[in-house]
Amino acid sequence: MELSTKELLKWSAAVKLREKSKRENRFEHGHRMCAGCGAPTVVKMVLLATEYPVVVSNATGCLEVSSCIQDYTAWRVPWIHTAFENAAATLAGVETMYRALQKSGKAPENVKFIAFGGDGGTYDIGLQSLSGAMERGHDMLYVCYDNGAYMNTGIQRSSATPLGADTTTSPAGSANPAGKMQTRKDLTRIMAAHGIPYAAQASPSHWLDLMTKVKKAHEIKGPKFINILAPCNRGWRTATDNSIEISRLAVETCYWPLYEVENGQLRVTFVPEEKKPAELFFKPQGRFKHLFAPENEGFLKRVQAEIDRVWQGLLKESAASENVSPGQAG
């Protein structure tokens, strides 16, 4: 769906689009991410929406191994990578030292802390350290770039992998024609259930929505979490030139709903004028090709039903929140 002029103007004002276009990228060219990868676009958007000095913590993964290779880095900000499962714990340490040094005036003002992890490093192996950091209330933003599998090691299933996807460890075969048999873990809701002040879901196709959420998150003290869809043409088996298009389809089919949970109040931030059938998102992706074969007849209906169930639940909760606090609607 095209944005209405009114919405565009509002969001544009919120993120000061014209000024953004003049700002220096703090995630620079020269990184070695694959052509067409969604993750660097996500990182650029997040950093462009960050109008503060920032320290970045990066979980092991595609983004990490491709962006800082001795003696080169694409990061124009202080950056730390320690291991796979602990971007949140590592950043918690940095943020705590910041508070300690601030007490004696030995640290600069207004520094923001952002962790980037893929879905493997966030939904799976890093869930404990993320949960711990959120519970302790560190003043930081954790951004998960969710491409739905362990792409760095060669497309293995994670708990973010969608139902029915063919990956190298959930392959569709003669004994199991449907690929991954389990639904995704709903991490954004799990993070919101920590009672943190801000959790949201975003997509690079809806960049104003994404950047507004990041900007908003930085103005809130405490732990924040944003889950951002990041198409991977290698794992999704899509063309290298359509990661934005495919992420738009993810949103418009409501496979990847855009919403935020602020102080417990859930608000859907984008409702497609016409909710498209899930098939439109699945069809261009090689990882779902088998679902269109005769032996999987009916499976897509199960996928559609799951998407509908989640979407209807979000709409219902969003409407209820708006009734509770009408000021936040729109």
Partner: peptide, 18 residues
């Protein structure tokens, strides 16, 4: 921390911070 793994991870982050 919520584990020793995170305790050491946070110690590393804090020490790197300075």
């Amino acid at each position: 921390a919520e584990s020793e793994h995170s305790a050491m991870s946070a110690a590393i982050g804090a020490a790197a911070a300075g």
